[in-house]
Each structure stands twice: as C-alpha cells, then as structure tokens.
C-alpha cells in the first residue's frame, strides 16, 4: 500500500508502525514518530495499524539553536 513518510510517497508492506520502522531500516535508531500530526510513542507503535494514504512523520536528533 502507499503511504506518505515525511511527505514522500512510499509503497510499503508493513501492517503496523513498528513494522514500518523496521522496513525503513530504522529499528534501533534514535527516532520519534507521529501519525496524522499526533505523537505515537515507541511503546504504541506495534498497536498502530497502517492504512492506505496515512501520513507518517519520523524525526531524529538535529542541530538546533
């Protein structure tokens, strides 16, 4: 199915957010996730089902002032 990850369309096979993080090669990485503008804690990623067209944000540490 097609979803939007950080505003890029991606065809993925994962059914949950936890699986998607794995599929993108980010398991174990220091990241945080949000779906539809709402924060999804790491502990809830495996319960969050992915559906067609879902908008997912994945962020990581970055330089800041």
């Amino acid at each position: 199915m097609n979803i939007l990850v950080n505003d890029e369309t991606r065809a993925v096979t994962s059914r949950t957010l936890a699986a998607l993080v794995d599929e993108l090669g980010l398991s174990g990485a220091r990241i945080a996730t949000a779906v539809g503008g709402e924060f999804v804690p790491a502990s809830r990623r495996s319960q969050l089902s992915i559906s067609e067209g879902m908008k997912i944000e994945i962020v990581a540490p970055m330089q800041g002032g």
Binding site: V5, N6, D7, L24, G25, L26, A29, R30, I31, A32, E57, I58, V59, A60, P61, M62, Q63, G64, G65
Partner: peptide
C-alpha cells in the same frame, strides 16, 4: 538541539546523536 525528519537512507540524525 532540535528534531528534523530522518531520511531512511542517510540517517544523519543518528550521527549527530
């Protein structure tokens, strides 16, 4: 520090971390 989108390929955030 801040947060920005992490690209699956580059993983810039992990190096910064």
């Amino acid at each position: 520090v801040s947060l920005r989108r992490e690209s699956a390929g580059q993983k810039a955030g992990q190096a910064f971390w």
